[in-house]
């Protein structure tokens, strides 16, 4: 039996700056995972990934990442994706200190 589909968000890196972004329900990219479209249906998720990947002039390397949900919006379920929402742990660099997210 194929593995049951688990909820996802679509994430990528911005083409110019390279920072992590998430794909919203309105076809834009946000630096905050809370703005991401929460994908619970596999067929819809695959379709949205194609649409996200079509935005070649904005992002690079879009993929589906496992996600959960809390009161504020989508959340990460794996530490790798959690690091992408914050930045490195050895310096206060990246999203953890940027105000625009």
């Amino acid at each position: 039996m194929p593995r049951a589909f688990t909820p996802k968000v679509i994430t990528a890196n911005l083409l110019i700056e390279g920072d992590a972004v998430w794909f919203t329900a309105t076809d834009t990219w946000s630096g905050n995972i809370k703005d991401a479209e929460f994908l619970t249906d596999e067929a819809h998720a695959d379709l949205r990934l194609l649409e996200a990947q079509a935005q070649q002039s904005v992002i690079a390397g879009a993929y589906l990442a496992d996600a959960g949900m809390d009161d504020a919006g989508p959340t990460t379920t794996h530490f790798r994706e959690a690091f992408r929402t914050r930045g490195p742990s050895n310096y206060a660099h990246g999203k953890q200190v940027e105000n625009n997210v």
Partner: peptide
């Protein structure tokens, strides 16, 4: 492949 030939990777948070 062109950027990799010139040492440029895309990593978790940036290039």
């Amino acid at each position: 492949p062109l950027r990799l030939m010139n040492g440029l990777y895309l990593q978790l948070h940036a290039y």
